[in-house]
């Protein structure tokens, strides 16, 4: 099938436009997080802070905050900044989706067949998962933390790792490719979000402990604007609990594909190995969540370690190690 160059150019332009929307959105979220006044969640959190101080004064234990339902607040300038950022994120998401769609139409196939496309699609999944959480859980505070790595990855995908639109090799053209890779992309997006929440949970926890002990907050003051640790913890579990079956399915679909292409469903190829390691790491997180003594801090550290495995599988294995999967082309 011939490549439609007009659509290919459109795809590249939309990709750039999406970046141009994400960048100020990320900036807006970051500035609002750093300098803005406390919003709904933060004001509850301020109460926690004040209460913890009293408890410390009274020799009580540090307070564990209950789940918080953010309430609508009066619109301040900062709130407007955040709202514009959300708007830009949605705009960027649509442009980004358009870029992927036109790439698929240009090449006449599912648009995730090489590293550039895989990164782009995964970033779309991350932003999509963020918008989902924004809608379901009012998790706007995640904005800067989610968009920053998205911008970085998309920047890399559009430059160093760029591959122009083209067809895929014979071995890649089967319907298991879209099934396997789509599941992997979606699960990756959800996992990134879940582990980010776990990371913020650790920050928030650290911050709460420092505040409760009346110590200087310093760098972890970044967590001041975050919701209480428990909310973040719950968010992380929800996301990872959603991502895990999808990842499991992705690995199985990959095995089915490998069986039809290479004559074995599992061969400990580096990509397979790291998909397995990532899977075990997230399973360990889910177990830690229900093991006494591991809930909370230890579990969240496992989620962070699992994210490291996920990222290594994504970049490291394709670029550093040679295996069967490397012929997907960088």
């Amino acid at each position: 099938m011939a490549v439609d160059l007009g659509l290919a150019t459109l795809s590249d332009n939309l990709f750039g436009a999406a970046l141009l929307a994400y960048a100020p959105a990320a900036l807006g979220f970051a500035v609002e997080a750093a300098f803005g006044p406390r919003t709904a969640t933060a004001s509850v959190e301020a109460a926690v802070e004040a209460q913890s101080r009293q408890l410390v004064g009274a020799g009580g234990p540090p307070l564990a905050a209950g789940p918080v339902e953010p309430r609508p607040t009066a619109r301040s300038t900062w709130d407007r900044v955040a709202r514009v950022s959300v708007g830009l994120t949605i705009l960027g998401f649509l442009l980004h989706a358009g870029s992927i769609l036109s790439r698929g139409l240009a090449a006449g196939r599912i648009p995730w067949g090489n590293m550039t496309e895989f990164i782009s699609a995964t970033c779309l999944a991350v932003v999509g998962a963020y918008l989902w959480l924004l809608w379901r859980e009012k998790a706007r505070f995640l904005g800067a933390f989610v968009l920053a790595p998205v911008l970085l990855s998309m920047g890399l995908a559009g430059t160093v790792l760029y591959t122009s639109v083209g067809p895929v090799q014979a071995v890649l053209s089967t319907y298991w490719l879209p099934i396997h890779v789509t599941a992997a992309v979606v699960a990756t997006g959800i996992f990134v979000l879940g582990s980010t929440a776990a990371m913020l949970h650790l920050m928030s926890l650290h911050y709460e402990v420092l505040v409760a002990q009346g110590k200087r907050v310093g760098f972890s003051g970044l967590a001041r604007k975050l919701p209480p640790a428990e909310t973040l913890d719950r968010l992380a579990q929800r996301a990872i609990g959603l991502g895990f079956p999808i990842w499991t399915f992705a690995v199985i679909a990959g095995a089915i594909w490998a069986e039809s292409a290479w004559g074995r469903y599992w061969g400990w190829d580096p990509k397979e190995t790291w998909a397995f390691i990532t899977w075990v790491a997230y399973a360990a997180y889910l177990h830690a969540r229900s093991t006494a003594g591991w809930r909370g801090k230890a579990a969240s550290w496992i989620a962070v370690a699992a994210l490291v495995c996920l990222i290594f599988n994504f970049f490291g294995v394709n670029l550093v190690i040679t295996g069967k999967h490397s012929y997907a082309g960088v």
Binding site: F276, A283, A284
Partner: peptide, 17 residues
Amino acid sequence: ALVLLFLVALAAVPGSL
């Protein structure tokens, strides 16, 4: 079980490197 899960993940690493 948790510890063994870790060990399996860890043991799989050298084979990929």
